[in-house]
């Protein structure tokens, strides 16, 4: 059942069959008292940082080291990302937004929790939470400050609102002092949050 192409890709509330089956099983097991939904969430949370974000970090590290790839990523992120083996199964399109000395990019989904799973894994809890979703658009600078990120006043902040059809990944600026680093070494500096835009890439130790 690898290829279930229903025609409602754009409709977030159309559960794919696998999601519905997992929910059915969870419902049964919770009713029987065999699993605790909070424990399930905790397990997912534990694994969330071990999985997806590395994919995005590889995309960014490649863009930092390979100008041709960076250009491709800028023009057609869906294809450039798929070339590394990371494809979504919902038919969503990807756009990569590049931070520059003038502009910082920040990603949100104001409507629900649309998120680039294929490159970032499962969204963090705060990304799905109403406070982030509602406040980022109104006061991005204030929200970033709460994440411990204070940007210069003359740096513009651009907020990208994800949808089921279009998902964004931020390409942070490459840190100073990393000339000659390998993609692998660079990827270690690229956190999940730096690809959402609530952090910058890490500095070399």
């Amino acid at each position: 059942m690898a290829h279930d192409h229903d025609h409602d890709h754009h409709h977030d509330n159309d559960l794919n069959p696998m999601t519905a089956r997992v929910k059915a099983l969870e419902t049964i097991l919770v009713r029987k008292g065999l699993v605790d939904p909070a424990a399930i969430d905790a397990i997912v949370d534990t694994y969330e940082n071990k999985v997806g974000p590395r994919n995005g970090a590889r995309v960014v590290a490649k863009a930092w080291t390979d100008e041709t790839y960076a250009d491709w990523l800028r023009r057609d992120a869906t294809a450039a990302i798929a070339s590394l083996g990371y494809t979504g199964r919902q038919g969503e399109h990807m756009q990569a937004v590049f931070n520059t000395p003038e502009t910082h990019n920040l990603v949100v989904c104001t409507l629900c929790s649309c998120y680039p799973w294929s490159v970032l894994g499962l969204p963090p809890v705060w990304y799905k939470a109403p406070p982030y979703r509602s406040r980022v658009v109104i006061d991005p600078r204030g929200v970033l400050a709460e994440f411990g990120l204070t940007l210069p006043a003359d740096k513009a902040i651009r907020v990208w609102d994800s949808t089921a059809e279009m998902r964004y990944i931020v390409v942070p600026e490459r840190p100073e002092g990393t000339r000659g680093w390998s993609e692998e070494e660079l990827a270690a500096l690229i956190s999940r949050d730096s690809m959402i835009g609530t952090a910058l890439a890490g500095q070399p130790a």
Binding site: V22, L34, R89
Partner: peptide
């Protein structure tokens, strides 16, 4: 551990993580 490895995502979609977590929990 979630299946490896360096070349692919362990979870491509949230339902996979949920299914993984159900088994771990049980």
């Amino acid at each position: 551990e979630p299946p490896p490895g360096p070349d692919g995502p362990a979870f491509a979609e949230p339902w996979q993580a949920q299914a993984f977590a159900l088994v771990v929990s049980l």
